[in-house]
Amino acid sequence: MTKTKMEQEPYKNLYLCKRIVQAKLFIDLHYAEDIDLEQIACTAYFSKFHFCRLFKKAYGKTPHHYLTQVRIDNALRLLGQGVPVAEVSFRVGFDSSTSFAALFKKHYGASPSDYRARQLKKQAWLVSNRLRAVPNCFAEAHGWK
């Protein structure tokens, strides 16, 4: 297949790009394990410094910040499902729930237990007020009203 202009010019080395993607997907898959930057850079066959620079150019944050973001995002998902805080902390790759709670609060602005309680309350409210979550025009279009 003929390469597009973009593939030829700004990414003379498409191979580099594929390796950055490979590292990002490694984080997405292994965020719950005890992984570190060296290991992630190794996955992509880069030196740590070179890897951090390219990763930040592609995704706007360092691999470390991205890993933290993935862990927090998954914690938000699990807490929203009602999973207890200590279990969430373990399932997203933290050794202790204290360090998890501190980092969560720093990123989200509320403690994991407060967030979990609020989400569960919201879901219970939604069950008995389901149409309140839907703009009227959509509810009518669906025939729900």
Binding site: T4, K5, M6, P10, Y11, L14, V21, L25, K57, A58
Partner: peptide, 28 residues
């Protein structure tokens, strides 16, 4: 932020592209 890495990642995940990245007057 970066079309080429996003394009490669989505291809790996099985997303079907109907046009590969090209340069346009506003970017790619």
């Amino acid at each position: 932020q970066d079309l080429m890495t996003t394009y490669e990642e989505l291809k790996v995940k099985g997303v079907e592209f109907i046009k590969t990245p090209t340069k346009e007057f506003y970017g790619y």
